[in-house]
Nucleic acid binder design. Structure first.
Lengths: 192, 192
DNA sequence: TACTGTTGCCAACAGTCGTTGGCCAACATG
DNA sequence: CATGTTGGCCAACGACTGTTGGCAACAGTA
């Protein structure tokens, strides 16, 4: 049994495949699922639309291949308990600005229930265990995780999707200083 | 000069017009702009698609007519300065649950830049003056308003659009107790 | 009564979408 | 060299979209 990271034989079309994937990511992030047409993606990649079908089966397959991320949060050591809020915000900002896939995921999730659920499960899988480890009242972990998700996604929404000028203009460390204590409170403060 | 609330002569088709508008609101809120087809809306309203065109010109006109809200925040008196956060959250929750138009606005704004900008201007027009009146450093008002918008929209996103179970399950007063102090800090705390 | 404007439905248009199958050149392999 | 395989393009299909024009039924008015 070979693992899921199996070595495929290098194909001659790998460059084309990568170009398509890049164009797809950009289009999905900018336009959402419906408005990002296969024809437009193919035009960006300077290639025929039928190639997209050949390599990725159909539009859903292309989307799945384009945004197949698992935003794994780095393991947080216990000794920095008073800084978890800020650290978390920093990690999320880095994650979001490294790859535009997350913006695509959020934009598409706004209309597609399936993508919405995937986004939810990914976030919850990361945040609930963290909330359980770090906060009081372990049975409250889902609520605390949801509040953190709402905080982070709210920023991503106004900054990367809706592009509110005042939100875009904020510096990364400014955001950390504002949102960090909020996350910290959601995770560690006693239930109000 | 008659105001914009001019009395139109009561038309025989007013009932039909209202039915169309209701169906449109529901569809736009549930599916977004592209997936909410005129045919589907007409089917919900039990009417011919061509009627939608006659009464509202085109799809964009229908959308404009369906979601033409001005979410005016009630004037907050000065003497409750320590409770602005909670009061604001309560108002937003009430606003959002009264009319589904806001969910439609958010879902469509995720893909349509024009709608996104309208959402932004409405929110900023409400929040910036408030932040200027209530917080220190008036020139920081846009930043504080953006943070509040991000908080509120983040909750709306996870609760009404993406429907994260843990976010949906929260009671209104629970939300007020969690988000209220956050908003309060964004508005009134000194710049970190 | 006859006439005019409104309300509604039906059928069809043009355009775009995702998707398919066939064809040709470049390559790889014997 | 001959062979099969791969990468790529082209033209087209069927489905669906927003949108339009014409036609029948009805209301109100003179």
């Amino acid at each position: 049994m070979t693992g899921s990271t199996e070595q495929q034989p290098a194909r001659r079309s790998d460059a084309t495949r990568a170009t398509i994937l890049d164009a797809a990511r950009a289009r999905f992030a900018a336009d959402g699922y419906e408005k990002a047409t296969i024809r437009a993606i193919a035009r960006d990649a300077e290639i025929d639309p039928s190639m997209v079908m050949r390599y990725y089966g159909n539009k859903a397959g292309l989307f799945a291949a384009a945004v197949s991320i698992d935003p794994r949060l780095p393991a947080l050591s216990f000794d920095q308990r008073e800084e978890i809020g800020r650290t978390l915000v920093r990690h999320f900002l880095a994650l979001w600005e490294e790859n535009g896939e997350l913006t695509a995921l959020l934009r598409v999730g706004a209309t597609d229930p399936e993508v919405a659920e995937r986004t939810q499960s990914v976030l919850q899988d990361q945040l609930i265990p963290l909330a359980r480890r770090v906060g009081p009242e372990p049975e409250q972990a889902p609520v605390r995780a949801a509040l953190c998700a709402s905080t982070v996604l709210g920023l991503a929404l106004t900054r990367y999707v809706l592009r509110f000028p005042a939100s875009v203009a904020l510096g990364r460390e400014e955001i950390v200083e504002w949102l960090g204590p909020t996350i910290q409170r959601y995770l560690t403060a006693p239930t109000p």
